Simulated scan of single mutants.
Amino acid sequence: MSTGYGAPYVTEPHRPGWPARLGPVEVPAGTVRLRPVRLRDATEWSRIRLRDREYLERWEPAQAGTWAERNAAWSWPSQWSTLRRLAKRGQCLPFAITVDDDFAGQLTVGNIIRAALRSAWIGYWVSSSLAGGGVATAAVALATDHAFTQARLHRLEATVRPENLASLRVLGKVGYRREGVFRRYLEVQGRWRDHDCYAITREETGAGLVTGLVNAGRATLPEQA
């Protein structure tokens, strides 16, 4: 008798679905696309992150150093280099979110595990100036569709603090379902916080999440605009 966990674990030598450029999708805020993060994103990435400290810091895991240090332009090259290295290994899909071709945030499909699991997590942030404009919703839909097709994954999950109503709405709009609560899951602003776990599998996406947004009137494709 076997539980399945004793089987040999073989990593796949390739990185399906990377690099990639996704979109466009039209939402009220503008034209949303996803592309690989770039070294030259440093200035705009830092500008938005420093400006949006109050908007972002309350949701993000604790890390070493101050917010100003972690989000200064000079700190971006090391973060970009790490993301690029993981992407080359097939362990993550690190995207920049753009709106009308301007840098607007980040989305990462991370901790990719293949073999029999084919699972990963998805995380994202978007500039406060675009809040409520459908940007995060479109970005998550684009990335999820890509993960389940070109990247050949089967399951994605997202963990969100129950107080983060905006992010919960994003996940609900695209079809992620709540699976439960992770107690004291991450340290955020000096305390261990509970997080709701949301997930979706390939079988639940139907014709695709972007198609679902279009059919619901939440987005359009350029040729339909």
Rank of each mutant, 00 (worst) to 15 (best):
A29K: 10
Q79W: 12
L171R: 02
N111S: 15
E54Y: 00
A143C: 12
V109S: 08
L156W: 03
E57C: 01
Y5F: 15
S167K: 00
D102Y: 11
P36M: 00
R178K: 07
A216P: 08
S167Q: 00
G132A: 04
R15V: 07
P36E: 01
R33V: 11
C197N: 10
L186H: 11
L93H: 14
P94F: 04
R38L: 00
W59F: 01
F103I: 08
P222C: 12
A136K: 00
P13Q: 13
G190H: 03
P61R: 06
K88P: 09
V126N: 00
T159R: 11
L165F: 04
R218V: 12
F95A: 11
G172Y: 08
W45H: 11
R35D: 08
W192R: 12
R202Y: 13
R21Q: 15
T98N: 09
T82C: 12
T31A: 08
G212T: 04
I97K: 06
N215H: 15
G134L: 00
L186A: 12
R161D: 09
Q224H: 15
T149P: 13
P19H: 02
M1H: 15
G4D: 14
R169D: 02
R184M: 10
S167C: 05
E54K: 01
L156P: 01
A104T: 10
W80L: 08
V170I: 04
A219F: 05
L171Y: 05
N215C: 13
E26N: 10
K88F: 14
T211P: 10
L221C: 13
T98Q: 09
H195M: 07
G172R: 10
W45D: 07
R193H: 01
L165K: 07
A158T: 04
L117Q: 15
G17C: 09
H146L: 05
W74R: 13
V37D: 09
Y124S: 08
A141E: 00
T11N: 12
I113P: 05
H14A: 15
R193L: 06
H195A: 04
A104P: 07
T43Q: 11
V181E: 01
R15F: 06
A115S: 14
S128K: 00
D196P: 09
V37A: 12
I48T: 10
R53H: 00
Q106V: 14
P24A: 05
V99I: 13
E223W: 15
W67V: 00
N111K: 14
E12Q: 14
K173M: 08
I112P: 07
C92E: 14
E179F: 02
I122K: 06
Q150C: 11
S2E: 14
T201S: 13
P28A: 00
E12F: 14
A64I: 03
R51Y: 02
I97Y: 07
W192T: 10
D100C: 08
R183T: 08
I112S: 09
Y55S: 08
G90L: 05
E12P: 10
L83M: 07
L171H: 03
R193F: 03
W59M: 04
Y185T: 07
G212W: 04
W121Y: 15
T108Q: 12
R177M: 01
I200N: 06
F95K: 12
